[in-house]
Design a protein around this nucleic acid. Structure first.
Length: 535
RNA sequence: GCGUCCGUAGUUCAAUCGGAUAGAGCAACAGGCUUCGAACCUGUAAGUUGGGGGUUCGAGUCCCUCCGGGCGCACCA
């Protein structure tokens, strides 16, 4: 990587100036403004105190040392602003990028080994089996699935998992709600389920079945279909009931007792989560003898470590108070705090007809994931979900997604991919074959559009790394949109198959198109969005 | 009240673990197809990054404080 070569050169040069070792804050990065060069380093700024020198003066000294024996591709060096040293590179460095994309290919380019095979269990969606998935669940589905794809590309071994709370009062209430509707009555209390789907399902429900069991299976079928429609697949659907029957609850409780973290008070059994930073202790077993939801959850999480060295829970904002107690419980069971990670996703607000649609399974109105996916398709839905950070609340206006379908950002990216394949088809029609890459004269690629495309491709590895480290799929979304923009600009200004294009240039551009295809396909794949050859 | 996530162009959002002149889409306005797909391209306009203070060579980003919003604060799940 050019970046590492430049940093090594900076390190050597700073050593000759008496600064050794180089502080880790010293980086080689891309200036936000291209006029500042291709790469720059903040070494002089970071080291000014160590070296006891004015940063501009130190920067000048650094530039002088580097100029005496320039790193590869470096054409010129200058010092700018408060003391940045800027590198201007010959476009040969971008030809190396093109070669890397082509030789490493769709499978290898931007594939990293951050994880070194570490297993990561990612739990997401985990909706109660009491109704259809609403559009808010769609966000966790799109996010979790994309995160798993990014983790896999970075050398982790992800395991996508979802949890079914098929045990407890909410299932009973579902059954009672269905039974009441079937009998033509209102559900008995406000804590029962009111949605339109209850009435529909009550009509479907055969006589003589257990309403609770039947309703839960009905809800699960519905959820499975919705997730399939979104193209989200799980490695494991974990059942709370099965987990408890397997003894996970008891074994966790026993180990917590053995560790001395459990005590009795007011007739209830408590876990001393305050030992691990929670703000109050938590009840494991109520005074009536029933376990709270927390205890089976602890047993389940403990069991998840069989399927991952690191556990990630993707949770809605309404669960953020849950994180401290779960982390505390897992620490009490001997797990390091960094082996449990909770990602708190903020809420989704859906707009339709200019008004907010309330997302509640118990209220009468809701929008199901299936409705959204049916209306706009899985690609539009997923791309929309992954357009922004999970840390911010999101507003999705269904009317906008539908009305602007043709101008939707996902089509902008997919169109770029389809154009690539269109070029391939046209080339085949005209009998134009690509000659082997090692016979190409890359020096013909001098157009700013071509170079910009290569610059964008060069940033994929660091973008993937950043998206993985920050658990931030939206960085991939942004990147692939920028790549599509670079490709569309190139396509517009740089003819490839036209008869007036010189053969050497045509060949180089065909390989650049192939590199673009690889980049677009990787980006879309990491988002779980289809990369169509025709639209 | 306590905790937590936010507040960036008319709007929806970006912004490389603190970098230089804060960028895109949509909407608005003005242009661009006789050779490959116009679902595209080019340009114009649009900002006191909620207010104030601090740390730093450098703050949208970190700290404090105030304002505004979401979500929590059960022997519910």
């Amino acid at each position: 990587m050019i970046r590492d070569e430049l940093l090594d050169a900076v390190r050597d040069a700073m050593a000759t100036l008496g600064v050794e070792p180089l502080p880790p804050a010293v980086v080689v990065e891309r200036p936000a403004n291209r006029e500042h060069g291709d790469w720059s380093t903040n070494a002089a700024l970071v080291c000014q105190k160590i070296a006891a020198r004015n940063p501009r003066e130190l920067g000048q000294a650094l530039a002088d040392v580097l100029s005496a024996d320039p790193p590869p591709h470096v054409e010129s060096l200058d010092i700018a602003g408060p003391g940045f040293v800027n590198f201007r590179l010959a476009s040969t460095w971008l030809y190396d990028v093109l070669a890397a994309v082509i030789t490493e290919g769709q499978d290898g380019y931007g594939r990293l080994d951050l994880g070194q095979g570490k297993r990561v269990n990612v739990e997401f969606v985990s909706a109660n089996p009491t109704g259809p998935l609403h559009a808010g669940h769609g966000r966790w589905a799109a996010y979790g699935d994309s995160l798993c794809r990014i983790l896999a590309r970075c050398g982790y071994v992800p395991h996508a998992e979802t949890y079914i709370n098929d045990r407890g009062v909410q299932i009973q209430r579902l059954g009672e709600s269905l039974a009441a509707r079937k009998a033509g009555q209102e559900p008995p209390t406000e804590d029962h389920y009111m949605g339109d789907y209850i009435a529909e399902w009550a009509q479907e429900m055969p006589d003589g079945v257990d309403p609770a069991e039947w309703g839960m299976q009905r809800a699960l079928d519905d959820q499975r279909q919705a997730l399939a429609a979104m193209h989200v697949a799980f490695d494991t659907w974990s059942s709370e009931r099965a987990s408890v029957e397997a003894g996970h609850l008891e074994s966790a409780l026993q180990r917590l007792r053995d560790g001395g973290f459990v005590y009795e008070q007011d007739g209830a059994t408590w876990l001393r989560t305050t030992d691990f930073g929670d703000d109050k202790d938590r009840v494991l077993i109520k005074s009536d003898g029933d376990a709270t939801y927390l205890l089976p959850d602890i047993g389940y999480h403990e069991n998840k470590y069989e399927r991952g060295d690191l556990i990630i829970d993707v949770l809605g904002a309404d669960h953020h108070g849950y994180v401290a107690r779960m982390r505390a419980a897992l620490q009490a069971l001997g797990h390091a705090p960094e082996d449990y990670e909770a990602i708190i996703g903020q809420n989704v607000t859906l707009m339709r007809d200019g008004a907010e649609v309330r997302l509640s399974k118990r209220a009468g109105t809701m929008i199901e994931v299936r409705d959204l996916v049916d209306e706009v398709g899985p690609d539009v839905a997923r791309f929309a979900y992954l357009l922004q950070s999970i840390d911010t609340s999101q507003t999705i206006d269904i009317d906008v997604l539908k009305a602007e379908a043709s101008e939707n950002p996902v089509y902008y990216v997919q169109y770029a991919h389809a154009r690539v394949h269109s070029i391939g088809r046209m080339a085949a029609e005209r009998g134009i074959d690509r000659v082997p890459f090692d016979q190409i004269d890359l020096g013909t690629l001098v157009h700013e559009r071509e170079l910009e495309l290569l610059r964008q491709l060069s940033t994929l590895p660091e973008t993937v790394e950043s998206a993985c480290r920050d658990r931030a799929p939206q960085k991939i979304t942004t990147w692939v949109r920028e790549l599509a923009a670079a490709f569309h600009g190139f396509y517009r200004d740089c003819p490839i198959l036209r008869t007036d294009v010189a053969p050497e240039l045509q060949q180089a551009r065909l390989w650049l198109v192939e590199a673009s295809r690889i980049g677009l396909a990787i980006g879309l794949d990491l988002l779980g969005v289809d990369a169509p050859e025709e639209m």
